[in-house]
Design a protein around this nucleic acid. Structure first.
Length: 267
DNA sequence: ATTTGCCCCTGGCGGC
DNA sequence: TGCCGCCAGGGGCAAA
Protein backbone atom coordinates (compact mmCIF):
# COMPACT_ATOMS: atom_id res chain seq x y z
CA UNK A 1 0.00 0.00 0.00
CA UNK A 2 2.58 2.50 0.87
CA UNK A 3 4.76 5.23 -0.39
CA UNK A 4 5.25 8.36 1.62
CA UNK A 5 1.78 9.86 0.99
CA UNK A 6 0.00 6.66 1.96
CA UNK A 7 2.14 6.22 5.07
CA UNK A 8 1.55 9.85 6.03
CA UNK A 9 -2.21 9.42 5.59
CA UNK A 10 -2.01 6.28 7.72
CA UNK A 11 -0.06 8.23 10.32
CA UNK A 12 -2.70 10.94 10.50
CA UNK A 13 -5.46 8.37 10.85
CA UNK A 14 -3.62 6.47 13.56
CA UNK A 15 -2.88 9.70 15.37
CA UNK A 16 -6.61 10.40 15.55
CA UNK A 17 -7.47 6.82 16.42
CA UNK A 18 -4.76 5.78 18.86
CA UNK A 19 -3.30 8.68 20.82
CA UNK A 20 -4.41 8.42 24.43
CA UNK A 21 -5.43 4.78 24.19
CA UNK A 22 -3.99 2.36 26.71
CA UNK A 23 -2.62 -0.94 25.44
CA UNK A 24 -3.90 -4.01 27.20
CA UNK A 25 -2.66 -6.97 25.24
CA UNK A 26 -0.51 -7.98 22.29
CA UNK A 27 -1.17 -11.02 20.11
CA UNK A 28 1.55 -12.13 17.71
CA UNK A 29 0.32 -14.77 15.26
CA UNK A 30 3.27 -14.79 12.88
CA UNK A 31 6.75 -15.10 14.36
CA UNK A 32 8.52 -13.43 11.48
CA UNK A 33 7.64 -10.95 8.76
CA UNK A 34 10.66 -9.30 7.15
CA UNK A 35 12.34 -9.72 10.52
CA UNK A 36 11.19 -11.55 13.64
CA UNK A 37 8.45 -9.69 15.52
CA UNK A 38 10.14 -8.81 18.83
CA UNK A 39 9.02 -10.93 21.75
CA UNK A 40 9.48 -7.96 24.10
CA UNK A 41 6.24 -6.45 22.83
CA UNK A 42 4.37 -8.77 25.18
CA UNK A 43 6.24 -7.40 28.19
CA UNK A 44 6.79 -3.81 27.12
CA UNK A 45 3.46 -2.72 25.63
CA UNK A 46 0.65 -3.74 27.99
CA UNK A 47 -0.18 -0.93 30.39
CA UNK A 48 1.39 1.72 28.14
CA UNK A 49 -0.49 4.57 26.53
CA UNK A 50 0.09 5.69 22.94
CA UNK A 51 1.48 9.21 23.20
CA UNK A 52 2.11 10.14 19.58
CA UNK A 53 2.31 8.75 16.07
CA UNK A 54 5.13 9.97 13.89
CA UNK A 55 6.64 9.08 10.56
CA UNK A 56 10.15 8.85 9.16
CA UNK A 57 10.23 8.04 5.45
CA UNK A 58 7.92 5.09 5.11
CA UNK A 59 8.31 4.03 8.73
CA UNK A 60 5.53 4.68 11.25
CA UNK A 61 6.67 5.43 14.79
CA UNK A 62 4.27 4.86 17.67
CA UNK A 63 5.44 6.41 20.90
CA UNK A 64 4.34 4.08 23.68
CA UNK A 65 5.86 5.58 26.85
CA UNK A 66 8.34 2.76 27.46
CA UNK A 67 9.65 2.96 23.92
CA UNK A 68 8.74 3.24 20.27
CA UNK A 69 6.97 0.74 18.06
CA UNK A 70 8.48 0.96 14.58
CA UNK A 71 6.25 -0.29 11.77
CA UNK A 72 6.92 -0.54 8.05
CA UNK A 73 4.03 -1.62 5.83
CA UNK A 74 6.24 -3.15 3.13
CA UNK A 75 4.38 -3.59 -0.15
CA UNK A 76 1.06 -4.84 1.13
CA UNK A 77 0.84 -4.00 4.81
CA UNK A 78 -2.32 -2.48 6.26
CA UNK A 79 -3.14 -1.25 9.75
CA UNK A 80 -6.76 -1.18 10.77
CA UNK A 81 -8.41 -0.21 14.04
CA UNK A 82 -11.32 -2.52 14.76
CA UNK A 83 -14.01 -1.77 17.32
CA UNK A 84 -13.74 -5.25 18.82
CA UNK A 85 -11.86 -8.48 18.23
CA UNK A 86 -13.34 -10.34 15.27
CA UNK A 87 -11.72 -13.69 14.43
CA UNK A 88 -8.44 -13.07 12.63
CA UNK A 89 -8.28 -13.82 8.91
CA UNK A 90 -5.45 -15.03 6.75
CA UNK A 91 -2.39 -12.73 6.95
CA UNK A 92 -3.57 -10.99 10.12
CA UNK A 93 -0.18 -11.16 11.83
CA UNK A 94 -0.42 -8.89 14.84
CA UNK A 95 -3.09 -7.48 17.15
CA UNK A 96 -2.60 -4.70 19.65
CA UNK A 97 -5.65 -4.68 21.87
CA UNK A 98 -6.58 -1.57 23.84
CA UNK A 99 -8.27 -1.16 27.18
CA UNK A 100 -11.42 0.20 25.51
CA UNK A 101 -11.84 -3.01 23.51
CA UNK A 102 -10.55 -1.69 20.17
CA UNK A 103 -7.90 -3.65 18.33
CA UNK A 104 -5.19 -2.43 15.99
CA UNK A 105 -4.67 -5.25 13.48
CA UNK A 106 -1.69 -5.58 11.13
CA UNK A 107 -2.57 -7.35 7.90
CA UNK A 108 0.14 -8.08 5.32
CA UNK A 109 -0.25 -10.77 2.64
CA UNK A 110 3.31 -10.55 1.35
CA UNK A 111 4.95 -10.31 4.76
CA UNK A 112 7.41 -7.66 3.59
CA UNK A 113 6.41 -5.48 6.51
CA UNK A 114 8.48 -4.81 9.59
CA UNK A 115 7.61 -4.53 13.27
CA UNK A 116 10.43 -3.41 15.54
CA UNK A 117 10.78 -1.99 19.03
CA UNK A 118 13.26 0.40 20.56
CA UNK A 119 13.59 1.99 23.97
CA UNK A 120 15.99 4.52 22.52
CA UNK A 121 15.16 7.48 20.33
CA UNK A 122 13.96 5.94 17.04
CA UNK A 123 16.27 8.05 14.88
CA UNK A 124 19.21 5.98 16.12
CA UNK A 125 17.60 2.64 15.31
CA UNK A 126 19.63 0.83 12.64
CA UNK A 127 16.66 0.76 10.26
CA UNK A 128 16.25 4.54 10.46
CA UNK A 129 19.73 5.86 11.12
CA UNK A 130 20.79 6.01 7.47
CA UNK A 131 17.67 7.60 6.02
CA UNK A 132 18.08 10.87 4.14
CA UNK A 133 16.11 14.11 4.47
CA UNK A 134 12.34 14.21 4.43
CA UNK A 135 11.25 15.38 0.97
CA UNK A 136 8.60 17.73 2.35
CA UNK A 137 11.03 19.67 4.51
CA UNK A 138 13.39 22.46 3.51
CA UNK A 139 16.35 20.14 4.05
CA UNK A 140 15.49 18.65 0.65
CA UNK A 141 16.24 21.38 -1.84
CA UNK A 142 17.95 21.77 -5.20
CA UNK A 143 21.36 22.42 -3.72
CA UNK A 144 21.13 19.29 -1.59
CA UNK A 145 20.10 17.09 -4.51
CA UNK A 146 22.80 18.60 -6.70
CA UNK A 147 25.45 17.79 -4.11
CA UNK A 148 24.06 14.33 -3.46
CA UNK A 149 24.07 13.46 -7.17
CA UNK A 150 27.71 14.42 -7.86
CA UNK A 151 29.93 11.51 -8.70
CA UNK A 152 27.04 9.11 -9.10
CA UNK A 153 26.38 7.38 -12.38
CA UNK A 154 23.27 5.54 -11.21
CA UNK A 155 20.05 6.50 -13.03
CA UNK A 156 18.37 9.51 -11.46
CA UNK A 157 15.20 7.50 -10.85
CA UNK A 158 17.16 5.04 -8.74
CA UNK A 159 18.77 7.92 -6.91
CA UNK A 160 15.31 9.24 -6.02
CA UNK A 161 14.29 5.81 -4.78
CA UNK A 162 17.39 5.51 -2.60
CA UNK A 163 16.15 6.21 0.93
CA UNK A 164 19.62 7.34 1.98
CA UNK A 165 19.33 10.21 -0.52
CA UNK A 166 15.73 11.17 0.17
CA UNK A 167 13.15 9.46 2.36
CA UNK A 168 9.90 7.91 1.22
CA UNK A 169 9.99 8.12 -2.58
CA UNK A 170 8.92 4.83 -4.12
CA UNK A 171 8.42 3.59 -7.65
CA UNK A 172 5.12 5.28 -8.43
CA UNK A 173 6.02 8.77 -7.30
CA UNK A 174 9.54 8.57 -8.71
CA UNK A 175 7.98 7.95 -12.13
CA UNK A 176 5.44 10.71 -11.63
CA UNK A 177 7.94 13.27 -10.36
CA UNK A 178 10.35 12.71 -13.24
CA UNK A 179 7.53 13.22 -15.72
CA UNK A 180 6.47 16.40 -13.98
CA UNK A 181 10.05 17.67 -13.99
CA UNK A 182 10.57 16.74 -17.66
CA UNK A 183 13.63 14.63 -16.86
CA UNK A 184 14.35 11.21 -18.35
CA UNK A 185 14.47 8.58 -15.60
CA UNK A 186 17.58 6.92 -17.04
CA UNK A 187 19.73 10.04 -16.98
CA UNK A 188 22.94 9.48 -15.01
CA UNK A 189 22.50 11.34 -11.73
CA UNK A 190 25.71 13.27 -12.19
CA UNK A 191 24.49 14.68 -15.52
CA UNK A 192 21.80 16.77 -13.86
CA UNK A 193 22.36 20.49 -13.81
CA UNK A 194 21.72 22.66 -10.82
CA UNK A 195 18.47 23.93 -12.29
CA UNK A 196 17.32 20.41 -13.17
CA UNK A 197 17.90 19.38 -9.57
CA UNK A 198 15.80 22.32 -8.48
CA UNK A 199 12.98 21.35 -10.84
CA UNK A 200 13.12 17.75 -9.74
CA UNK A 201 12.99 18.61 -6.05
CA UNK A 202 9.98 20.80 -6.70
CA UNK A 203 8.29 18.04 -8.71
CA UNK A 204 8.89 15.45 -5.98
CA UNK A 205 7.38 17.75 -3.39
CA UNK A 206 4.37 18.62 -5.55
CA UNK A 207 3.66 15.03 -6.46
CA UNK A 208 3.88 13.82 -2.86
CA UNK A 209 1.97 16.74 -1.37
CA UNK A 210 -0.66 16.53 -4.11
CA UNK A 211 -1.26 12.90 -3.35
CA UNK A 212 -1.53 13.57 0.38
CA UNK A 213 -3.97 16.41 -0.29
CA UNK A 214 -6.28 14.21 -2.30
CA UNK A 215 -6.06 11.31 0.13
CA UNK A 216 -3.62 9.33 -2.06
CA UNK A 217 -3.67 8.94 -5.81
CA UNK A 218 -4.43 5.27 -5.48
CA UNK A 219 -6.66 3.01 -3.48
CA UNK A 220 -6.08 -0.40 -2.01
CA UNK A 221 -8.98 -2.74 -1.70
CA UNK A 222 -8.92 -4.40 1.66
CA UNK A 223 -7.65 -7.95 1.99
CA UNK A 224 -6.12 -8.07 -1.44
CA UNK A 225 -2.83 -7.03 -2.97
CA UNK A 226 -4.62 -5.37 -5.90
CA UNK A 227 -4.63 -1.60 -6.11
CA UNK A 228 -6.57 0.92 -8.11
CA UNK A 229 -4.78 3.83 -9.70
CA UNK A 230 -6.73 7.07 -9.75
CA UNK A 231 -4.51 9.76 -11.08
CA UNK A 232 -1.19 8.72 -12.59
CA UNK A 233 0.40 10.62 -15.47
CA UNK A 234 2.79 7.83 -16.47
CA UNK A 235 2.94 5.02 -13.91
CA UNK A 236 1.10 1.95 -15.20
CA UNK A 237 0.47 3.59 -18.58
CA UNK A 238 3.35 1.96 -20.41
CA UNK A 239 1.25 1.17 -23.47
CA UNK A 240 -0.59 4.48 -23.53
CA UNK A 241 -0.04 8.00 -24.79
CA UNK A 242 1.45 10.99 -23.04
CA UNK A 243 -1.20 13.19 -21.45
CA UNK A 244 0.86 16.24 -22.37
CA UNK A 245 2.08 15.72 -25.95
CA UNK A 246 -0.04 12.78 -27.07
CA UNK A 247 3.00 10.75 -28.16
CA UNK A 248 3.58 7.13 -27.19
CA UNK A 249 4.99 6.54 -23.70
CA UNK A 250 7.91 4.17 -23.30
CA UNK A 251 8.41 1.52 -20.66
CA UNK A 252 11.82 0.36 -19.52
CA UNK A 253 13.22 -1.33 -16.43
CA UNK A 254 15.60 0.41 -14.07
CA UNK A 255 16.94 -1.51 -11.12
CA UNK A 256 14.37 -4.14 -12.03
CA UNK A 257 11.52 -1.70 -11.41
CA UNK A 258 9.01 -0.76 -14.05
CA UNK A 259 9.69 2.71 -15.41
CA UNK A 260 7.45 4.71 -17.73
CA UNK A 261 8.31 8.02 -19.35
CA UNK A 262 7.61 10.21 -22.35
CA UNK A 263 10.69 10.36 -24.61
CA UNK A 264 9.55 13.72 -26.01
CA UNK A 265 8.56 15.52 -22.81
CA UNK A 266 11.38 14.10 -20.71
CA UNK A 267 14.94 14.87 -21.66
C1' DA B 1 32.20 4.19 -2.02
C1' DT B 2 28.85 2.84 -5.37
C1' DT B 3 26.29 -0.14 -7.69
C1' DT B 4 24.03 -4.47 -8.82
C1' DG B 5 21.24 -8.28 -7.94
C1' DC B 6 19.05 -11.33 -4.80
C1' DC B 7 15.61 -12.37 -1.90
C1' DC B 8 11.90 -12.32 1.54
C1' DC B 9 6.34 -13.82 0.34
C1' DT B 10 1.57 -14.13 -1.57
C1' DG B 11 -1.69 -13.35 -5.06
C1' DG B 12 -3.67 -11.46 -9.39
C1' DC B 13 -3.62 -11.67 -14.14
C1' DG B 14 -2.80 -12.97 -18.93
C1' DG B 15 -1.71 -16.64 -21.95
C1' DC B 16 -1.96 -21.24 -23.42
C1' DT C 1 -11.25 -24.60 -15.84
C1' DG C 2 -6.42 -25.24 -14.74
C1' DC C 3 -1.71 -24.60 -14.66
C1' DC C 4 2.45 -21.57 -15.38
C1' DG C 5 5.15 -17.70 -15.65
C1' DC C 6 5.45 -13.00 -14.80
C1' DC C 7 4.70 -9.03 -12.20
C1' DA C 8 3.56 -6.12 -8.02
C1' DG C 9 3.58 0.00 -3.56
C1' DG C 10 9.91 -2.09 -0.53
C1' DG C 11 14.34 -2.33 1.02
C1' DG C 12 18.07 -4.74 3.62
C1' DC C 13 22.06 -7.02 2.51
C1' DA C 14 25.97 -9.43 0.36
C1' DA C 15 28.99 -9.30 -3.24
C1' DA C 16 31.13 -7.23 -7.20
Amino acid sequence: MPELPEVELTRRRLERELVGKRIERVVVRTPKLRFPIPRELHDSLPGRTVRSVERRGKYLLLECEAGWLIIHLGMTGFLRLLPGTPPPGKHDHLDIAFADGAVLRFHDPRKFGTVAWTTDTPATHPLLAGIGPEPLTTAFDGAYLYDASRGRRVAVKQLLMNAAIVAGVGNIYANEALFRAGIRPDRPSSSLSHSECGRLVLAVREVLQGSIDQGSTYRVAEHTVAYHPLDFAVYGRGTGDCTRCGGALEEIRLGNRSTVYCPRCQR
